[in-house]
């Protein structure tokens, strides 16, 4: 294959990765932005989404599209529910102390991992794509499902943006993010907002996992990479900045795609980590973060 088509293929692969990464990282960024909680269990919410998607598609009768559509609804709701419960039972009791919640979410991540190992097993298992469509370009054929993943991610991210900027719920979340004490003085139930945001963040990770699981198999250790990459994206974009998160996801996703195709995936991760180090040294608040 010539260089041009090869580059195009790499960019398309990078775009798919960027889309899924943006969904996952926006969840992490929302949780940090509103609650000031560094959620180390975020990758395991991603993993739970994928594992539950396997269960739903495996046991749902009918064509694959039906099971997949059901997974798209059930997984974020279930994972969001687990997250809300974790918030109420654990994080709230720690009064959202930044250091204590890091330790608590590390603990949560092990609990979720071991639960998945116990009930799902150690094997990686495939989930069938909802449709089998191949788009034939002049140089190569490309999976129509991967393009659908990008479109779906854009639609969901747009919905999140509209939620945050155009709705009353978004206004309440932003007010809580800015000053939770004053928010309470205006009748905002901050505990409920936190539970909702934690559920939303986890739900976004779960949706991302459902979208990606027909491309990558579901596995109980699959949460590590999304967690690492989400942190990279959120640190580069600026903690709590949705705009920065989206832009950084695009940069990291595309560069990961291109470098992985032309060189190696390991080099892509090394360069991303190097970029994080540079950002931490020269602009600790991230590209779009606010200096404290």
């Amino acid at each position: 294959m010539d260089f041009g088509p090869f580059l195009l293929l790499a960019l398309m692969e990078g775009t798919v990765m960027a889309a899924v990464l943006a969904l996952t990282a926006v969840g992490l960024s929302l949780v940090f932005g509103v609650m000031r909680v560094v959620n180390v269990a975020h990758g395991e919410f991603f993993m739970l989404g994928a594992v539950i998607a396997w269960f739903v598609t495996h046991y749902m009768p009918g064509p694959p599209a039906v099971g997949f559509a059901a997974a798209l609804v059930i997984c974020p709701l279930l994972v969001g529910g687990v997250a809300a419960l974790s918030d109420t039972l654990i994080l709230k009791r720690l009064n959202y102390d930044p250091e204590a919640t890091i330790v608590a979410t590390i603990g949560l991540s092990y609990i979720f991992q071991q639960a998945a190992l116990t009930f799902y097993g150690p094997d990686a298992r495939p989930v069938e794509a909802p449709f089998d469509l191949r788009i034939q370009l002049p140089w190569f054929g490309y999976s129509g499902y991967k393009i659908a993943v990008v479109v779906a991610a854009i639609v969901i991210l747009l919905a999140v943006w509209l939620l945050m900027t155009r709705t009353r719920a978004g206004l309440i979340m932003r007010a809580t993010q800015l000053d939770r004490t004053t928010a309470r003085a205006f009748g905002i139930n901050v505990d409920r907002v936190y539970a909702a945001v934690f559920a939303l963040g986890a739900g976004l990770a779960a949706v991302a996992a459902v979208l990606i699981v027909p491309i990558q198999q579901a596995h109980y250790l699959m949460g590590h990479d999304p967690l690492l990459l989400s942190f990279i994206v959120v640190i580069i974009g600026g903690l709590g900045s949705l705009r920065g998160t989206l832009l950084a996801a695009l940069v990291i996703g595309l560069s990961d795609g291109v470098i992985s195709v032309f060189f190696s995936p390991t080099l892509a991760k090394i360069l991303a980590t190097l970029l994080v180090a540079m950002v931490l040294v020269f602009r600790p608040q991230g590209l779009f973060g606010v200096k404290q």
Binding site: R168, L171, L178, D179
Partner: peptide, 13 residues
């Protein structure tokens, strides 16, 4: 709520 507009601060009230 400094990042919110005047209208949004009033809306919160």
């Amino acid at each position: 709520f400094g990042e919110l507009t005047v209208a949004q601060n009033i809306e919160i009230g």
